[in-house]
Nucleic acid binder design. Sequence first.
RNA 1: GGCGCUGUAGCUCAGUUGGUUAGAGCGCCGCCCUGUCACGGCGGAGGUCGUGGGUUCGAGCCCCAUCAGCGUCGCCA
Length: 596
Amino acid sequence: MVSDFGSRRSCGALRASDEGAVVELNGWINRRRDHGGLIFVDLRDRDGITQIVFDPKQPAFADAERLRHEDVLRVNGTVRKRPIGTQNAKLPTGDIEIGVDRVDVLNRSLVPPFAVNTDDDVEENLRLEYRYLDLRRPRLQRNLTIRHRIVKAMRDYFDSREFLEIETPMLIKSTPEGARDYLVPSRIHPGSFYALPQSPQLLKQILMIAGFGRYMQIARCMRDEDLRADRQPEFTQVDVEMSFCTQDDVLEIMETCMRHVWHEVLGVHLPPFPRLSHAQALERYGTDKPDLRFGLELTDVTQIFAHTEFVVFASVVRASGAVLALRYPGGAALSRRDFDALAEIAKGHGAKGMVWVSLDAGGPKSSAAKFIDAATAELLREAVGAENGDAILLFADARGAAASVAGKMRAEIGERCSLRHPGDFAFAWVTDFPLFERDEESGLPAPAHHPFTAPGEGQWDLIDTDPMAMRAQHYDMVLNGFELGSGSIRIHKPQFQRRIFEMLGLTEEQIEQRFGFFVKALDYGAPPHGGMALGIDRIVMLAVGETSIRDVIAFPKNQMARDVMMDAPTSVPESLLRDLALRSAAPVPRPQGGAQ
RNA sequence: GGCGCUGUAGCUCAGUUGGUUAGAGCGCCGCCCUGUCACGGCGGAGGUCGUGGGUUCGAGCCCCAUCAGCGUCGCCA
């Protein structure tokens, strides 16, 4: 970054070849080294650090004695080579320094509450309160820079593939189902509300109906649900939709996008993404977002226990459940107490229990030794491909429940065995999702993704006979165990869309009221279309090796969905509520006692 | 809402089976220092141990409650 304003330069720009140049630098004091008779100041901006030297012979020296961390300076001076032996190889600007002619203190800073010139750990709440200082630190400067490059690479890529970026509104209609909406009350229509978009789903489909053919948008989405390290109430997606396409077309476009981004930004060449069916993913990894950086696939060992006398396993087998085995490399080194702790973790993930078999050199040991003799242990060892020194963990339950627990424990073992290298990028496609899944509470079919997803070829025939068996043209992109996003080929025939709504138990009136505008649009020549949306926050998080998307978002909210810097949300004056025809039903907050 | 971890100086942390005056590094303040770059040297200030209650002769440490932060389950069509 070389500034284009006269003699002004960035703090990362100057080199030995600039010797003799008369320049102006602006920046913050990163560090000051006072030798009494000579003062060095490291001046910092986004671009880098340049050493400024104050000599006692100069009038500016008196100012330099009063400078402190994070003061803001303008420095006018001359670029000169550093004396032999005093160059700093750690800095790109380390061969030169600025001999000061004049310094202006543009602003002073209070002593910052934490060190700005390092990435040392600081309690996150404090970082969020002083986010402007946190953002000055190297880590977030780097993360947001890379985020910019990733988004730019995406825009360039989609532009080159003839996608148009089109903005969609933030104030839209609430369409119940799905996540909880953020609502915005209407002043002009008392008692009525806009919703903030959970995604531009229907709008982008309508853009296809409108004939735009290929759409993309860097779109902000809002969902009022509980937060996680990888979930914020507002987040950003690269949202994509295209007409007259097949599922393979969408996968090709999106996969090439990621390959382009990784190459442009990280200089990494990605291999083709492996494809797994949803059923395969569950069977082999116990999750629909497997971490493919390592193997340790689950093994179905139900047959080995077909005639077991072990009551726990026998009853599972009788109930058509499954016994799933997971290899724990080096797990034989664990003590009984260690295995007990591991079983507790499994229970935390919903396991009814966990049986372990330790393949010790002196013969197998097990928490169910009475029922797992040496021959059985050998069968297990062969089945999971384990070696002496490994352990095998067994989970028995209904097939889905056992797979879910075993999948989470697979991640745990991968972590313990250091198989999840942050620099590895294991992308994958998961395809052939079921169209419906059983709603836990009502027991009725509910859309596995959203109700606009088209079933696969020939699947419509099943809707009256076996809807739960219907496969969808729905696909997820997965990276290192995170779901980056999902997409589908959409239903474009209005009669089919109505059929799905009916299937979900919506009445004619409800369809009209909630989705009438959309079904009407389908009636006017909607083209076949499909698309996808990827979570940019998660992509950037994984690209830069962070473990929370808060570290790739400039102003994130904490786990209680609070903006700690602004202190939002807050109550508002009664008069504002009156304008909106609202009255708060919230309990009167009790005085906050003893925060920190 | 459940479970887990955490809360001691401005920051990051240590603090023994409960025992006298709660420590370290960094930062901060002052003085000294002309080639440092995590500069160095000397000196100094700085603590309701998250909050409230309890047990005890005595609590940073034990117990109960509560607040806050993070992780996770539920939730996220």
